[in-house]
């Protein structure tokens, strides 16, 4: 009887550990965006992206603080926060979605896998459904996720004044790079 109880406990512990290892998180994910307009190239970096991936369900979320974007020019950073993104009103951007082709990705086997990601992206207080491609690279027990997609500023009610319309691209290239680690609680 004692043996049975010990075996059951070990089984539950093992299952618990396995379930925990299904969640991968990072607090240092990176997002880079790039605007390629006729009169100006603008880019910004953010190295404090919070991201979580559940490899059993495919649930995938990230949350970005807009004030954490760093621009080369202080004036651009000021305009981005105060005039366009209005980060005092909308301090976060979030994505909540799913990896929809989970059956094609083997997170336990090293390799590079194409991922289809669908969900809702909220920027500047506006939420839009998006469907984008990305890759997961499984290597040395780690999962690196990368994606490049485009965001149309008009879709998120971001108003560009007529005077600088040629300085900012209508579609902004967004590059996401995350290296989440297994959550061991």
């Amino acid at each position: 009887m004692k043996k049975l109880i010990v075996m059951l406990m070990i089984t539950f512990l093992a299952l618990g550990t396995q379930m925990q290892a299904q969640k991968y998180i990072t607090k240092n994910g990176q997002i880079h965006f790039y605007s390629d307009a006729p009169t100006e190239k603008i880019e910004a970096f953010n190295n404090h992206v919070n991201s979580a991936l559940d490899i059993s369900s495919g649930d995938f979320i990230f949350r970005v603080l807009m004030k954490s974007f760093q621009f080369e020019k202080a004036l651009m950073q000021e305009h981005f926060n105060e005039n366009y993104i209005e980060s005092h009103k909308f301090p976060n951007a979030t994505f909540m979605g799913k990896v929809t082709n989970l059956n094609e990705i083997d997170f336990s086997t090293p390799g590079s896998y194409q991922a289809q990601i669908e969900g809702e992206l909220s920027i500047h207080g506006v939420t839009q459904k998006i469907s984008e491609q990305g890759t997961f690279e499984v290597k040395d027990g780690k999962i690196q996720g990368k994606s490049t997609f485009y965001v149309a500023v008009a879709d998120y009610d971001i108003k560009i004044p007529q005077a600088v319309i040629t300085n900012i691209s209508e579609k902004i290239e967004v590059n996401v790079d995350i290296l989440p680690e297994a959550l061991n609680k």
Binding site: H48, N50, R63, V64, L65, P91, N92
Partner: peptide
């Protein structure tokens, strides 16, 4: 301070 991301307050 750049904000709160639902887990942490971030200072840069």
């Amino acid at each position: 301070c750049t904000g709160y991301n639902q887990t942490d307050v971030i200072l840069e």
